[in-house]
């Protein structure tokens, strides 16, 4: 079954069209990356799926069910998003416990205490962090809380918007390992936005390269091994990321 299916998706912010004619399918259990430079519209695609950019036309369906243009509770239990900056995405005056219980409260789910304890353990946070506030946590710990919050409703599809770009290399490795382990344990599907190609190589199976609001190429992650891209833009992006040094001359 396809986890995410986008057909002829156009997204605009007011009069400006930022994304045009996006088509792709992500299979269940797959990890798919959207790469491109800032302003290419890759985050906008995630926002449209999550319902944060409501001015879209075309078709978005997640796990076989079409997404409407309005707030959709059922949708939230299937698909959740993790944002780029853990310093901005957590409410500064809500403790970790409140942040994690909130989705359960909204959806009227019980056994909250145990679920919060289990989720903290799943993302590798000690129980002593449960009643702390975001300012008492490091960047990596905050991102773990943000991931835990997204997982509270046990969604099957996760939208990851540059989950490690605000973090240091050593912390990035921890978060990437965590995401990889969670995907394996819970059978999640990832749609991940990043501009870091080595991260794609580590995390993903396939990727779509975006430029100026359009997808220019969909390639398997193995293309990163040998720089086997057909589109000139993807090749230049690959070269700019320090690609395979033996093949730099192609760019």
């Amino acid at each position: 079954m396809t986890a995410i299916s986008l057909k002829n998706l156009d997204i605009s912010y007011g009069p400006t069209k930022v994304v045009q004619g996006v088509n792709f399918d992500v299979a269940e259990g797959e990890s798919f990356a959207l790469v491109g430079e800032s302003g290419s519209g890759k985050s906008t695609v995630l926002k449209a799926i999550a319902g944060l950019a409501p001015e879209w036309t075309g078709e978005i369906s997640v796990l076989g069910e079409a997404r409407s243009h309005t707030v959709d509770r059922g949708f939230a239990t299937r698909c959740q998003m993790v944002f780029q900056d853990p310093y901005g995405s957590l409410h500064p005056r809500k403790s970790v416990d409140t942040v994690l219980s909130e989705p359960l409260m909204i959806h009227g789910l019980g056994n909250r205490n145990q679920r919060v304890i289990d989720m903290l353990a799943a993302v590798g946070l000690d129980q002593r962090f449960r009643f702390r506030f975001p300012h008492q946590l490091s960047g990596g710990q905050r991102q773990r809380v943000a991931i835990a919050r997204a997982l509270m409703l046990e969604p099957k599809v996760m939208l990851l918007d540059e989950p490690t770009s605000a973090l240091d290399v050593s912390v990035q490795a921890e978060i990437l390992n965590l995401l990889k382990r969670l995907r394996r344990e819970q059978g999640l599907t990832y749609l991940m936005v990043t501009h870091n190609l080595p991260v794609v190589s580590f995390m993903c199976d396939r990727m779509a390269v975006m430029n100026k609001g359009r997808i220019v190429e969909i390639a398997p992650a193995s293309a990163l091994y040998d720089g086997n891209f057909s589109d000139p833009y993807s090749q230049s992006l690959y070269a700019a990321s320090g690609g395979n040094p033996d093949r730099k001359d192609i760019a």
Partner: peptide
């Protein structure tokens, strides 16, 4: 800890 372009490791 830095992921490589030709990543084959399962865990960093």
């Amino acid at each position: 800890a830095v992921p490589k372009m030709e990543e084959t490791r399962d865990e960093l």
